[in-house]
């Protein structure tokens, strides 16, 4: 965890009078899983949106592998290797699962101003798309329209599409949102497998998931960082215990 991959400096986002994210500075190292937790409206998604270019920060700076990416548009952020999944499922419902991953993978052609050869003839795209499907566990659903699979499977597809873009850094916004118990378990084991290959920022509500895979934890409340640091340290921080984790956490 020595070399920093991603770093934010005093990141702030204001919507009119509301400060959704206030002065957040975090770092994510190579192979590090950095979890961000916090109650509804804490500013987690806003944070993610700034990291992936969906929102320009009001103040502060984002550095990725030493490069200033503040204010870069989402398509360029994706091309430099940051893959992002969405809290609200964001797929192509009328496409089959394979076609969803295919379009994601095809973005790695550099450009798609390719008018004549059928898309299916691009072997590298096929390989990437199949890999995405396989990693997210949807190979058996490849030819099913994305609108016809279960909510949990759509959440898996959401991640499969990110992986099909061959990222080398992941930003996942509540990948488990709205999932049933069994589906969550499957996704957690997928995430655990991913942590061996990718550094990632994980926004999550599900405490068990966070505690089982995160190395670093940032707790946000009302746009501000309440505590940030190694998992065990933050978990036992009295302020965090009191403000966020509450009574239910005595179990461990």
């Amino acid at each position: 965890m020595t070399d920093t991959v991603l770093r934010t400096d005093h990141l702030t986002k204001r919507f009119g009078g509301l400060t959704a994210v206030k002065d957040v500075s975090i770092t994510v190292g190579q192979r590090e899983v950095h979890a961000i937790i916090g109650p509804n409206g804490a500013g987690k998604s806003t944070m993610v949106n700034m990291l992936t270019g969906h929102l320009p920060p009001s103040e502060g700076q984002i550095l990725f592998r030493g490069r200033d990416i503040t204010g870069m548009p989402p398509n360029r952020i994706s091309q430099i290797g940051i893959g992002r999944s969405f809290q609200r499922t964001n797929i192509f419902p009328s496409f089959t699962c394979r076609e969803n991953c295919w379009l994601a993978a095809q973005s790695r052609l550099g450009n798609s101003f390719r008018f004549f050869l059928p898309a299916s003839r691009y072997q590298r795209v096929r390989t990437l798309a199949e890999k995405g499907l396989e990693l997210c566990g949807l190979s058996h659903r490849a030819d099913t329209p994305a609108s016809a699979i279960s909510h949990g499977e759509q959440r898996q597809l959401e991640i499969g599409m990110v992986l099909a873009t061959e990222p080398d850094f992941l930003v996942l916004d509540e990948p488990m949102a709205g999932m049933g118990q069994e589906e969550s378990h499957r996704l957690v084991s997928l995430l655990r497998r991913l942590t061996t290959d990718y550094p990632l920022v994980l926004v999550e509500h599900d405490m068990d998931a966070v505690f089982s895979i995160a190395d670093t934890l940032t707790v946000m409340v009302n746009g501000e960082v309440l505590a940030s640091g190694p998992l065990d340290q933050v978990r036992s921080d009295p302020a965090v215990q009191e403000a966020y984790l509450g009574d239910g956490e005595e179990a461990y």
């Binding site: 969906h54 398509n75 091309q79 964001n90 192509f92 790695r108």
Partner: peptide, 15 residues
Amino acid sequence: FGIKENEERVRAMGY
């Protein structure tokens, strides 16, 4: 076809 269905996601995927 992707743009028609979900332009935001097309952009997020790098186009």
